[in-house]
Simulated assay, not measured.
Amino acid sequence: MRRSEFLRAVDAEFGARSATLVNDLVLGQIGSRTASEALASGVPPREIWLALCAETDVPVERRHGAGRLEPRRR
């Protein structure tokens, strides 16, 4: 996931609340930082996305993010 994909996914999932969540919500899974702090310090956007989803109880089936129709298979 790229930074731009992360931002689209946040906007698609949270709409008007997206900026507030990215800038104000502290995520314990990524070192007790906000998403914007984590992005600035080099944490991979996918890791931040998953932490944000877990913190805000996004259902697992929607955690693959925007911009992709299905999660990438490994």
Rank of each mutant, 00 (worst) to 15 (best):
40 A>M: 09
31 G>K: 03
16 A>C: 10
37 E>H: 02
40 A>S: 14
18 S>A: 15
48 I>H: 04
55 E>F: 01
45 P>L: 03
48 I>F: 09
19 A>I: 12
13 E>D: 07
42 G>R: 04
26 V>M: 09
6 F>C: 08
34 T>A: 08
29 Q>E: 14
34 T>S: 11
55 E>R: 11
6 F>L: 15
33 R>L: 13
10 V>I: 15
21 L>N: 06
15 G>L: 10
45 P>E: 05
29 Q>N: 11
32 S>G: 10
52 L>H: 06
30 I>P: 05
38 A>V: 01
35 A>Y: 00
12 A>R: 10
28 G>A: 14
14 F>Q: 07
52 L>Q: 04
53 C>Y: 02
24 D>W: 03
11 D>F: 06
8 R>Y: 03
48 I>N: 04
51 A>V: 08
56 T>N: 12
53 C>F: 04
7 L>E: 13
50 L>I: 09
44 P>H: 11
53 C>L: 07
40 A>V: 06
16 A>H: 12
48 I>M: 10
38 A>I: 01
23 N>M: 06
12 A>S: 14
21 L>C: 12
44 P>A: 13
25 L>H: 07
27 L>H: 05
53 C>P: 06
46 R>E: 12
37 E>A: 11
51 A>R: 00
17 R>M: 13
47 E>T: 15
24 D>K: 11
52 L>R: 00
37 E>D: 14
38 A>E: 00
28 G>I: 04
37 E>N: 04
47 E>I: 11
29 Q>Y: 02
23 N>I: 00
32 S>N: 15
39 L>S: 06
4 S>Q: 13
38 A>R: 00
52 L>N: 02
10 V>T: 13
28 G>V: 09
17 R>N: 13
21 L>D: 04
45 P>V: 06
29 Q>C: 05
3 R>H: 12
6 F>Y: 11
19 A>Q: 14
21 L>I: 15
6 F>D: 04
51 A>I: 05
30 I>R: 01
23 N>Q: 12
3 R>V: 14
53 C>W: 01
14 F>R: 03
22 V>L: 15
20 T>I: 11
14 F>V: 11
10 V>M: 15
36 S>K: 03
26 V>G: 10
45 P>G: 10
54 A>P: 01
51 A>L: 07
30 I>V: 15
30 I>T: 09
17 R>H: 13
43 V>M: 09
20 T>G: 14
33 R>N: 07
24 D>G: 08
9 A>T: 12
23 N>H: 14
3 R>P: 03
40 A>C: 08
23 N>T: 10
50 L>R: 04
22 V>S: 03
50 L>A: 07
54 A>N: 09
